[in-house]
Design a protein around this nucleic acid. Structure first.
Lengths: 68, 68
DNA sequence: ACATTTTGCAACATATATATTACATTTAAC
DNA sequence: GTTAAATGTAATATATATGTTGCAAAATGT
């Protein structure tokens, strides 16, 4: 499933996928694939993205619907 | 760094590493290595662990100290 | 309309999470 | 103190996240 919360947080900060990727230290494709839900990123990468976007893990990667 | 919050949540539920691993669908070693901080787990595995232990990502994997 | 930036997508290479098996060590029960 | 369960650790194998390059498509600005 696409991660729309991540994309929203990114554009709210006025960052392109490439800019966010450089801040976090990964490739542009990796950011794109995470946003489109085709990658299962590592925890450390998720945390890096959260810090770059001033959000928490729950903000960007926790879906209340799924929590049983 | 060791993930002490994960270990605490697990023992609070009275689960061994092996039992949690079976619930989540990974090997016992994987749980042990995550607890001892030697693995960088995938997001989906983190979410599976959270659901199994009735916690959120922030509860188990977000360190307030690190958030800049 | 054109130019530029942004994003999507594909093929291949590499790094690393995870599985499996086995054994050692610690912990808990008796 | 012995036994069994729980955990640590190591070697090798596999799956997959991620990098790199390149090109196409879409979006944005002028």
């Amino acid at each position: 499933m696409k991660n729309i919360k991540l994309k929203l947080a990114r554009v709210e900060k006025d960052l392109s996928q490439d800019e966010l990727a450089k801040i976090v230290g990964v490739s542009r494709q990796t950011i794109g694939l995470i946003e489109s839900g085709k990658y299962n990123p590592s925890l450390s990468l998720c945390i890096g993205i959260c810090i770059a976007l001033s959000r928490t893990l729950n903000d960007l990667f926790w879906d209340e619907e799924i929590k049983d």
